[in-house]
Design a protein around this nucleic acid. Sequence first.
DNA 1: AAGTGGTCTAGACCACCGT
DNA 2: CGGTGGTCTAGACCACTTC
Lengths: 235, 235
Amino acid sequence: MQTKYEMVVNILEKEMLEDKYSLSKKLPTEEELIKKFNVSKNTIRKAIEILVSKGYVYRVQGSGIFLREFAKNGCAQIRDINGLSKQYSKEKFESKVAEFSLINADEKLSDRMKCDIGTKIYYVKRVRYLNGDPIEIEESYYNKDIIPYLNEEICSKSIFDYITNDLKLKIGFADRIITSEKLTEEEASFLNLEKDDPALVLNNTIFLSSGIVFDISVEKFNYKNMKLISLTSIN
Amino acid sequence: MQTKYEMVVNILEKEMLEDKYSLSKKLPTEEELIKKFNVSKNTIRKAIEILVSKGYVYRVQGSGIFLREFAKNGCAQIRDINGLSKQYSKEKFESKVAEFSLINADEKLSDRMKCDIGTKIYYVKRVRYLNGDPIEIEESYYNKDIIPYLNEEICSKSIFDYITNDLKLKIGFADRIITSEKLTEEEASFLNLEKDDPALVLNNTIFLSSGIVFDISVEKFNYKNMKLISLTSIN
DNA sequence: AAGTGGTCTAGACCACCGT
DNA sequence: CGGTGGTCTAGACCACTTC
């Protein structure tokens, strides 16, 4: 079941992607949206707030709701938790599994994943390609208590689709630490780069909406063909 | 003048930083907060939403409002638009102005800053230090039509303080493109690093709340001592 | 002054969690 | 089942922009 504000968000998102408002660069006024969707002012405001936080629009008091230029374009949005395959669904996006195993959490891993020592953990190492070019090395750890089953087949597609659609789990929020590092020789070979070339590195801890850690991962991006974008707003 | 929800946010933020809720790792219930602050449910909900988006807390339906671990700790939050000097106010943070000039926007610059060709633009290059170590090179361009006056003195302190407190301008939102690059020899010397060492690079476009671009900048961070953090939530 | 977004309230009812 | 967060409404009034 969908809430009213989700419906409003989805329809406006779709209309914006179809360039419905790109001439005026404005959305209809709140009052017009209230009539269009036949909902209350607060429901419209909640929907618009979500579009603001997604980077689609900004609001100017007394003036209107304006389109923001970005959002549409190619680079990966850092606020999207749902992995790369969603973002690049229209392009040729592939994941190759380089390693796959079931391990026991040692002290360090249990600490980072907020689980007990000895908890079964899936370890997955993937190399990911966009239009044939390697763009990322990803190493992930999934808590088996939460993700009871995983295999190489699933990992070569979208793990996040599997988790949300098949396991019906709700992803809640993520911590990401962003750094830059030198590649090791092995990493470089995966990315068709040289040893000591730079890499854009994301260190992620991903939580279900219940606040439980189900995944930690390190993503190392090819500095030549990957950029991330962050669209922030002030509260 | 402060709104009621801002007051609630500020007080709860302060209380959390004072570890008032760190034992239970929970905030009071919505109902308790309604009584505590004597405001309506929607006002409390709006305040909590802001704390969620700032990464302080997460909510679990039917259960409560829980503290998130991070927020407090040292690294720079990418969603904070207000520059580094705010974030490091308690540490020894310095900015040295390496270049300062007033230029005319050429075609490329006018395009990126969404202004006319020939618009007067302040160019500022700064090296920034934390506890004596160089952590960042920043090159910024400020539209003089919006920031009518700037000098080296102001640039060596906090430009954002000047803009918000003295000029009374309201900063609205920012686009940031995050990449990794090799340092040039000159850049490396500023950061006490070697040529071709990696840098974490932010390419920013910063808007007033009215949607006008007033600043674009490139920040190159020292990969050895700077990390950024992004705390994201799902809508 | 008219248009448009921002704050705030009181209250109804729903959905989910834990006991 | 009681506790707690989530959705939604109708309406009052405020603040800023634009003309």
